[in-house]
Amino acid sequence: MFQRDRLFTLIVWSAALLVVLIFASFIGNIIYYGLKNFSFLYLWSNPINTGREGGIFPIIISTLLILLVCMTVAIPLSLCTAIFLTEFTSQENILARFIRRSIDVLSGVPSIVFGLFGNAFFSVKLGLGFSILSGGLTLACMVLPIMIRLTQEGLRAVPPEYSLSGSALGISRSQILLHLLLPAAAPSVIVGLVLGVGRALAETAALVFTSGYVDRLPQSLWDSGRALSVHIYDLSMNVPGGETSAYKSAFTLLILVFFINSITTQLTKLWLQKRIILQ
């Protein structure tokens, strides 16, 4: 018995260590090669010679714009859908079941399929062409399922007393939601947001078909713009001698994800703390 316990402990520990090791070596690799001859000028200048030299300024702007479009659409949509599913319908409701099933299916669709759909629908059918707008909207479709699911889980975990005691005091449903339920569900909503942002920033395949390849500074949302992930893919696959720059871009992407996530988390917490006190 004792022997078996020790073996078990050993397996659990080595598995955990292995995960940490993989993660550390992977991050370390990017930081090591990315920081090699990295300068802030890299962030501020235009790419030269298809990205082998120069910087990535227009690419960062395109990435941020695509993310902005994506989140502007995905956040309200996912919040409202989650609220509808948890607060306005019962579990057995046919429409709710249909929506839940759609979300399940949607979350299992490979990103390349989203890319093809985005291309066919946003670029061609709606005539948006290869643009930041079609890219952002395609990404919004992609991140919706995860954001809805986590918001829903957060709302479900809120103790039912909040809702009951609020209603018993004659507070309207919308105010209970805004002041009590959503703030209480916030930790989960934030996780959804962070995962959504991460997934959107990491996406390559879907964007190749929708927001395109152009590495100039976009003049409007209707312009094509190259996202960082696409840039990394292009540098490492299609541009001989682009590896150094690819590493630097990957490093930038990591920092970007980190920054955006901490800013969203802090802002959401700040907004919430005005409403309720999270333990």
Binding site: Y162, S165, S167, A168, L169, G170, I171, I277, Q279
Partner: peptide, 28 residues
């Protein structure tokens, strides 16, 4: 809404909102 203002309810388990003492009274 009006009815519930006139007919208040106290629950078995104390259920103040997770807010400050002041807000608990001022929010409603």
């Amino acid at each position: 809404i009006e009815l519930r203002r006139k007919v208040g309810m106290i629950f078995q388990k104390p259920n103040p909102f997770p807010q400050t003492i002041r807000k608990n009274i001022e929010f409603p």
